[in-house]
C-alpha cells in the first residue's frame, strides 16, 4: 500500500498493520457514535505515516485504540492491530502494558497535562528506564540525562530536577519525546505534537522527530490537522473524514493531484504562504455536523461540490487507482489537480 514510499527509503515489511479498525462509543439514551469506521493502514520500519483530518474525524481515537488507551467502559473496539504477527487488541492488559512504552509509545498534544506536575522530569524519565529496561538508579539517571541531551534540552543534568511547570512549552514537549524514546520503541505515535506550540518551536520539534526517525529506524505515525506539517514530514498520507480513510497516497502525489473532493477542498480552503495574495479562499460549505452516516452513502456528500445522486445512496468502496487509495464515486479528475 505504501510501496512507493517504502521503495523510496528502502523499507520492507510492515511493522504495524491496522485492519478494519472500528471504535464505537455507547451513549446513554441515544444511538451509538461511530468514531472510527473501518480504518486500514500499515506502517513500515523507518516510515512516517500521516493521519490528517479535522476534529471529529477519528484520528486521535485511532491512535488511542492502537495504544489500547481508550477506557473500556462505553467503548467497543473491533478489528485488528497487528505488530510482530500478534493482534494487540487481543493481548491481556498486563502483556499490553509490557509492550506500551517498550515497543510502541506515544507523544501527546499537551505536554503539561501528560506529565506528572508534582514529579521532577528526571524521575519521570528514569521511571520508564527502570520499569522497562530494568536499569538501576544511577545508570538510569545517566541515561536520562543523555536522553534529554539527545532531544535538545540544554544543561540536561540540571534539568533532571526541574518540574514540568518550570519548563517552557517546547521544552516540555522535548521532555515528553525523551520519555517516549526512553526504551527505543520501534513505533512512535505523535498526536498533534506541535499544535500547542509556536511556529518557530514547531519547526524545532518537527526537525527533531524527523532526525530521530532517520537515526533509530523507528516508525512514526503522525497525527495532525495541519497539511503543511504533513507535506514536509510524512512518506505516506492518510486523509480521514468521518472515521474513514477517504484518500491515501504518497505525499508528493497527494499534494500535486488531490483526487478526493475533501482533500482538494481542504487544500484550496487554507490560506497559504505560497498562494497569490488577495484571492478569495474556496471554503468548504457547512461543517462536520452535516455529515451523512457512512452506511447511507458518502459522509462528505452534503458538503461536497462534486456530489451526485449516487453519493447519497451508495457507500463508496475503497479503490486503488494509480498507487493511491480513494473512496469516492466522483473523484476530481487527475489532470485538474
Amino acid at each position: 500500500m505504501s510501496a512507493a514510499a517504502g521503495a523510496e527509503r528502502g523499507i520492507g515489511a510492515p511493522l504495524l498493520e491496522v485492519r478494519d479498525l472500528r471504535v464505537t462509543f455507547a451513549r446513554r439514551g441515544g444511538p451509538d457514535t461511530v468514531a472510527v469506521d473501518g480504518v486500514d493502514f500499515a506502517v513500515a520500519p523507518g516510515e512516517i505515516v500521516g493521519l490528517v483530518g479535522e476534529s471529529g474525524c477519528g484520528k486521535s481515537v485511532t491512535s488511542l485504540a492502537i495504544m489500547r488507551l481508550l477506557p473500556e467502559r462505553g467503548n467497543r473496539v473491533a478489528g485488528e492491530v497487528r505488530m510482530d504477527g500478534i493482534d494487540l487488541l487481543g493481548l491481556s492488559d498486563a502483556a499490553m502494558r509490557e509492550r506500551r512504552g517498550r515497543d510502541l509509545s506515544m507523544v501527546f498534544q499537551d505536554p503539561l497535562s501528560s506529565l506528572n506536575p508534582v514529579v521532577p522530569i528526571g524521575v519521570q524519565v528514569t521511571e520508564v528506564l527502570r520499569r522497562h529496561r530494568g536499569m538501576r538508579k544511577e545508570p538510569a539517571r545517566r541515561e536520562a540525562a543523555e536522553l534529554l541531551d539527545r532531544v535538545g534540552i540544554p544543561d540536561p543534568r540540571r534539568r533532571l530536577g526541574s518540574y514540568p511547570h518550570q519548563l517552557s512549552g517546547g521544552m516540555r514537549q522535548r521532555a515528553l519525546i525523551a520519555i517516549a524514546l526512553a526504551c527505543r520503541p520501534r513505533l512512535l505515535i505523535a498526536d498533534e505534537p506541535t499544535t500547542a506550540l509556536d511556529v518557530t518551536i514547531q519547526a524545532q520539534i518537527l526537525g527533531l522527530l524527523a532526525e530521530l526517525v532517520a537515526e533509530t529506524g523507528a516508525a512514526l505515525i503522525m497525527i495532525t490537522h495541519d497539511l503543511g506539517v504533513v507535506a514536509g514530514l510524512c512518506d505516506t498520507v492518510n486523509v480521514l473524514y468521518g472515521g474513514r480513510i477517504v484518500e491515501r497516497s504518497q505525499r508528493h502525489r497527494l499534494f500535486a493531484t488531490p483526487r478526493h473532493p475533501y482533500t482538494h477542498g481542504l487544500l484550496s480552503s487554507i490560506p497559504r504562504l505560497d498562494s497569490a495574495p488577495g484571492e478569495e479562499l474556496v471554503a468548504i460549505p457547512g461543517s462536520v455536523n452535516d455529515n451523512l452516516p457512512w452506511a447511507h452513502g458518502c459522509a462528505f456528500a452534503p458538503r461536497c461540490p462534486r456530489a451526485m445522486e449516487a453519493c447519497e445512496q451508495r457507500t463508496p468502496a475503497p479503490e486503488e487507482i494509480g498507487g493511491r487509495l480513494l473512496r469516492c464515486h466522483n473523484p476530481v479528475p487527475a489532470s485538474a489537480g
Binding site: 540544554p154 517552557s168 517546547g170 521544552m171 509556536d198 511556529v199 518557530t200 518551536i201 514547531q202 519547526a203 524545532q204 518537527l206 526537525g207 495541519d226 497539511l227 503543511g228 506539517v229 504533513v230 507535506a231 514536509g232 505525499r251 508528493h252 499534494f255 500535486a256 487544500l267 487554507i270 497559504r272 504562504l273 505560497d274
Partner: peptide
C-alpha cells in the same frame, strides 16, 4: 518556520531554526 502544504517546496526549503525559547 511556517510549513507549506507543498512537498516539493518543503523539501527544497532552508529553515532558519531559532534556538531556545522566547
Amino acid at each position: 518556520a511556517v510549513p507549506v502544504p507543498d512537498p516539493v517546496l518543503e523539501d527544497r526549503r532552508e529553515r532558519i531554526l531559532l534556538t531556545g525559547d522566547l
